[in-house]
Design a protein around this nucleic acid. Structure first.
Lengths: 302, 302
DNA sequence: TCAATAGTGTCTTTAAGACAATATGTG
DNA sequence: CACATATTGTCTTAAAGACACTATTGA
């Protein structure tokens, strides 16, 4: 059974239509990917008995070109015509960290007009989580200076206003990104509008100090997502080395969530997700702790 | 204190750089938004005593042009140079449904090469939830035929393979979109690769029947997200009319989750999210049920 | 010895699951 | 009155929070 070829209103077949299709009829934006690369590293601790406190780090690169010359930006770049968004993200990640097989998740696509003073740029942000012990040193890696920054946030204030349209809650959050040499900061305003049953959330940069583009907003958003997901998924393991103690794992949860957890409950919660080894972490000035590894069968369940 | 203007390696100030910036140096993709507009509608029920069963619906438009001429696609379109992604999404939503103040959430950005036979197209998908009782009839609304389709999915099979790289789990899901006139379907393969602690998930269209582009993949993804989010957020209320009974609310949860819930537990769970009214739904051949409305204070808490 | 963490036991609190029992309008 | 849903009560189960108690090391 032969089928009559489908034609459009101009009488064209699909083949004819595609041959004459003018791809330039719509003005096109540039498309980039921006990478939010997180890791958790140990800080120095003078007291030999105490555990080294951990801190959440994010990778930034110093801009060597206008705009925002000399300021710090998320690593990223243009998506080339023959690679998918995810391929572009993995390529950027590899050039910055020399790692592959890394946790990678698409977060959000930022498409406001005027995000970039050069031209219309739409940017898809990806979050990557890396185990800091697997990281090669960056030294001489590349021309652009990539550095890790300690990331912290702080609640500044919150207001709640009743308007005819509903209730508007505004929260100001301060980000602080610090380094041996640099201290960056930004203030983000989160606006939640409740009108009837519809809730809308927006974020806005109130002030930024040496953080390029709208990247402070992206960082704040990613931090929020990381916090959310660590509670109901197993992404924390992507931040851990092959072997870790339950105390270290708990520290990672604590530094991301920004609060202390009860050890007993934490151990119950992760019990099925990890496998015991017969190795111990010793020479720590206190009872040695058992090393564990991730239990892949936990993920294969169901 | 005056500051020396920053210059790049070519000695240009930011102003000079931007004036000479060549926006065409990178090949640019087209950018579109695609809308996943969901609602829940009543089906007809012959038995006067029984509640009318509800079904989940999604809005599709029939393509009047190549490619995929005559097939059904998600409503959407190109993002114009002077609107943000969200503005484009709201514009598309309004032209299709004549509604604004609707729940709208960015879902995912699809950027595979070859998604669209015309040219490189990157598409950001947005999920919108509408209350079907507020919907105007579509008749004569627009030239393109927009129609609601009942959406159902079914698990076909699942395989689990151990490879040197880790464990690969493949699941086949069938989508079925039906209408008085049309019956569309698609099979999606979900692949989950567990290598060490890294889990990666991809989806692939195995077969589609009259669903344009890669939209079947988008629909399956959105359905998964809708299911996930209805459990831990309050998006279900965006699908409800102003007044509803707890039984109706439960039906909405049930049709989205695809399983029955226990009424007692359900009522406990939503108790703080709703406000009693003094009105009753009567004439139903059984005990009348109280009408409730959404409790905005629930969202304002914390 | 003791500071500091590792690891366990158990009681309490809270949420969810299961299901029985009671309530009530309409044909 | 019987049907079908509405609504509440209560017992069970599971998870989380709180906290005390024991274990073990290195300087």
């Amino acid at each position: 059974m032969t089928q009559k070829p489908l034609v459009n209103k101009q009488g064209q077949t699909e083949e004819q239509y595609l041959r004459t299709y003018d791809a330039s009829q719509f003005e096109r934006p540039s498309v980039t990917v921006d990478m939010l690369v997180f890791t958790v590293m140990d800080e120095v601790e003078e007291n030999y008995r105490k555990l080294s406190p951990k801190s959440l780090k994010i990778l930034l690169v110093k801009r060597g070109e206008h705009p925002y010359l000399g300021q710090w930006a998320l690593p990223g770049g243009f998506v080339s015509p023959h690679e998918s968004l995810e391929e572009a993200a993995m390529r950027e990640l590899f050039t910055e960290t020399n790692l592959d097989n890394i946790y990678l998740e698409q977060l959000y696509t930022w498409g406001d007009v005027g995000r970039d003073p050069r031209t219309r740029v739409i940017s898809t942000s990806y979050m990557a989580l890396v185990d800091s012990s697997a990281l090669r040193l960056q030294a001489g890696d590349d021309a652009d200076e990539a550095e890790w920054f300690r990331l912290e946030d702080k609640w500044l204030k919150e207001t709640k206003t009743k308007t005819p349209d509903g209730t508007v809650t505004e929260k100001w959050v301060e980000l602080r990104l610090t380094n041996e040499r640099e201290e960056l900061s930004a203030t983000i305003k989160l606006t939640k509008t409740i009108s009837g049953k519809i809730v809308r959330e927006t974020r806005e940069i109130v002030e930024t100090n040496r953080i390029a583009f709208d990247h402070a907003k992206m960082i704040q958003y990613a931090l929020e997502r990381l916090r959310g997901k660590i509670e109901y998924t197993d992404i924390a393991f992507a931040l851990m080395p092959e072997l870790f103690t339950l105390g270290e794992l708990q520290q990672v949860y604590e530094v991301i969530l920004g609060k202390e957890l009860l050890a007993a409950a934490f151990r119950r919660k992760v019990a099925d997700k990890v496998l015991e080894t017969n190795r111990y972490r010793k020479h720590a000035g206190h009872r040695p702790s058992k090393y564990y590894r991730f239990n892949p069968e936990w993920m294969e369940r169901g």
